[in-house]
Amino acid sequence: MKIVELSKAPEKENSHNVIAKELYDTEQTQVVHLELKPGEALKLHKTPMNVLFYVLEGEGIVVIGDEEESVSRDMLIESPKGIPHLLRNESEGLFRFLVVKLKE
């Protein structure tokens, strides 16, 4: 059994300059915890694999391709590989979510 405590997980450097902690990484899957403070956002980018976002806390905006939606706690968002996407926090509170990369 492997248990990872968020507070002890290593921070992962990223081009978005946000708090990211790697929770899990294998050949098939990667799970990263991201925190966006008010006004922070991920840069528009593409990934070479399908990605899932699971909102843990707060509210944010998700843009995938030409679609834009408000999301909040306990929502799961699918982002297909190769499609530009971003998440941003336009709220007054913290926006926390898991990023699950499904490697091929």
Results as ranks from 00 to 15, higher is better:
52 L>A: 07
41 A>C: 08
33 H>K: 09
83 I>C: 03
30 Q>M: 09
47 T>N: 14
72 S>E: 12
49 M>A: 14
2 K>H: 12
61 I>Y: 11
15 S>E: 15
47 T>E: 15
85 H>F: 08
68 E>L: 04
62 V>Q: 07
52 L>F: 14
82 G>P: 03
19 I>W: 11
28 Q>G: 13
7 S>D: 12
61 I>S: 08
15 S>K: 15
82 G>L: 08
11 E>Y: 11
46 K>S: 10
98 L>Y: 10
53 F>T: 05
41 A>S: 14
89 N>M: 01
29 T>A: 06
51 V>G: 06
10 P>T: 07
43 K>C: 06
31 V>N: 08
11 E>D: 06
87 L>H: 13
61 I>Q: 10
1 M>Q: 12
71 V>W: 08
13 E>N: 13
21 K>C: 05
38 P>G: 01
26 T>V: 02
10 P>E: 10
16 H>Q: 01
92 E>K: 15
46 K>D: 11
84 P>T: 02
48 P>G: 06
70 S>Y: 13
63 V>W: 13
75 M>K: 14
93 G>V: 01
74 D>R: 13
12 K>F: 09
100 V>G: 01
46 K>P: 04
19 I>M: 11
32 V>K: 05
12 K>R: 14
51 V>E: 13
94 L>G: 04
42 L>V: 01
28 Q>E: 15
54 Y>S: 03
27 E>Q: 12
37 K>T: 03
32 V>D: 01
50 N>P: 02
86 L>A: 15
32 V>R: 06
32 V>M: 05
91 S>E: 01
16 H>N: 01
77 I>K: 04
59 E>N: 03
73 R>P: 04
80 P>T: 01
4 V>S: 06
8 K>L: 07
35 E>T: 11
80 P>G: 00
40 E>I: 01
87 L>Y: 12
17 N>T: 09
10 P>V: 06
40 E>R: 02
9 A>W: 07
104 E>L: 05
90 E>S: 00
27 E>Y: 13
64 I>C: 06
24 Y>W: 09
86 L>D: 10
22 E>K: 08
55 V>W: 02
9 A>R: 03
86 L>C: 10
45 H>P: 04
83 I>N: 03
33 H>D: 07
8 K>H: 09
55 V>S: 02
81 K>H: 10
41 A>F: 14
17 N>F: 14
44 L>P: 09
11 E>K: 14
14 N>A: 02
31 V>Y: 08
82 G>A: 06
17 N>C: 03
6 L>H: 02
102 L>W: 04
23 L>I: 00
1 M>D: 11
88 R>K: 11
103 K>Y: 05
46 K>I: 13
28 Q>D: 15
72 S>A: 08
99 V>D: 09
21 K>Q: 07
45 H>F: 05
91 S>N: 01
104 E>S: 07
100 V>T: 07
8 K>D: 07
27 E>P: 02
68 E>C: 05
24 Y>C: 06
49 M>P: 08
11 E>A: 02
85 H>D: 00
96 R>H: 03
26 T>E: 00
103 K>L: 03
11 E>F: 10
20 A>Q: 05
86 L>E: 12
82 G>T: 08
91 S>D: 03
84 P>V: 03
88 R>M: 05
